[in-house]
Design a protein around this nucleic acid. Sequence first.
DNA 1: CTTGGGTAAATGTACGGACAAATGCTAGGA
DNA 2: TCCTAGCATTTGTCCGTACATTTACCCAAG
Lengths: 253, 253
Amino acid sequence: MGVNRAQPRYRALAEVLRIDLQAGRYPVGSVLPGELELVDRHRVSRHTVREALRCLEEQGLITRNRGIGTVVTALESPPGHVQRLASPAEWMRYPEGSRLVVLATDEVVADAELASSLACKRGTHWCRVRALRRLKGRGGAVIGWSDIYLPKEYAAVAISVGKAGGYVYEAIEKRFGARVETVEVELRAEVLDAVRAKGMGVKSGTPSLALLRRYRGREGRVFLVTIAEHPAERYTYGFRLRRSRDGSVWLPD
Amino acid sequence: MGVNRAQPRYRALAEVLRIDLQAGRYPVGSVLPGELELVDRHRVSRHTVREALRCLEEQGLITRNRGIGTVVTALESPPGHVQRLASPAEWMRYPEGSRLVVLATDEVVADAELASSLACKRGTHWCRVRALRRLKGRGGAVIGWSDIYLPKEYAAVAISVGKAGGYVYEAIEKRFGARVETVEVELRAEVLDAVRAKGMGVKSGTPSLALLRRYRGREGRVFLVTIAEHPAERYTYGFRLRRSRDGSVWLPD
DNA sequence: CTTGGGTAAATGTACGGACAAATGCTAGGA
DNA sequence: TCCTAGCATTTGTCCGTACATTTACCCAAG
């Protein structure tokens, strides 16, 4: 059993299924044959089938739903050049850790631009917490400016921002019994406006990394949006990836 | 068996082990008890133990080595606030795909600044390929500028840049029998210099997302470095994450 | 027509066993 | 001394089985 094969069976099966997928046999949104069906077809154990499906799941090609089946979510990743790295990555790791220092809490009404960022209608009311991100320790350097937007009904958690550990979204989950299902992240370069530049003590017009995170619940409801600005001279984001066992994906190191 | 538990056993075990780790019982670099040992200690099957270890592996806390054992690689991620998202993420997905159009290939000698980017000594010689990234199709918009640096001994693959699909690092692997083990990614905001601004047809001084990727082989040897610039007005990087089954990590959607 | 329960189907969890493959170490021989 | 063969240890792969949990669907009762 399992002697001297170049590739383990589950990986070979994953490869076969991936090729089937990309050949159009199972379009996006369709349901793959059940695990037991695959057991019969390929004459392997269910364990092997499940390992194979796990491979495809890690590559983001399928999702598995109890009671429903295994659904195809993508056929493949577009052949970019060097760009496309399927990469588990820690998002935003600060050297030594950092903390938020709240500057102000107020209520704002979304204008056109803000509405686009918050994915809401113009005129919607939000609770906004403005804060500086500093390195830990007395007099720690300011490395960023965060604006945290909460829907009015969650405004109560505003006071917990900057308090001891834990994420804002976790505070909302705990307090209101909701659950964040997805996060949308947007990243772009900007030049700092005067207010934020002054608040962080850098020159107005400094290039800055703008990082937006939009937390959504089950039906797409927006729970929380944070917009962080990091001046180039104060902060560079970096991480390292290593190859997974089978070489198909990149993992954080 | 397995009736009405709030949490499956493997996840509970993962939690226990994670707490042990963070309590300092197994310092970074140390070897965890073997799987069979954990089977005895916790009175569960090896399958359950392995699932638990897989959880910890996905969180980046351990790595498992056949014949050696399970090694602790991290105790935890520093307690940021909203920032820290353990997140498998597709890195750089362009809308509709894009292609590289090579502008020039030349040889450069690393000055102090470049040496820092390329993680080499000053005075080292590199083969540099300069290229524009455009959306596909005739007259596709220019969305970025890439500088690709190759060590002199790999200069032969320079001609394959921009040619049909596949990554540059894969070309190196195939041609020279090497294997990329890790990738370091650095991200920051910059203002474009005159040359690149002109090349992309934007105003000099435009804010730009600078993305550096440093590919390394087994002994840390640098195989390839790419530096991509994306003007803010031309490109925003975005992706979506969803929660993993057990809620411990974020996966690409 | 709506609501409820029951059933079938699908994946998830968990147990058991066995052998393969990689590594580190040791003992023995050249 | 050095090198190799072999052994013990550890994780990887693969098989089998059973039951739990979730979901979709049908059908009967109200």
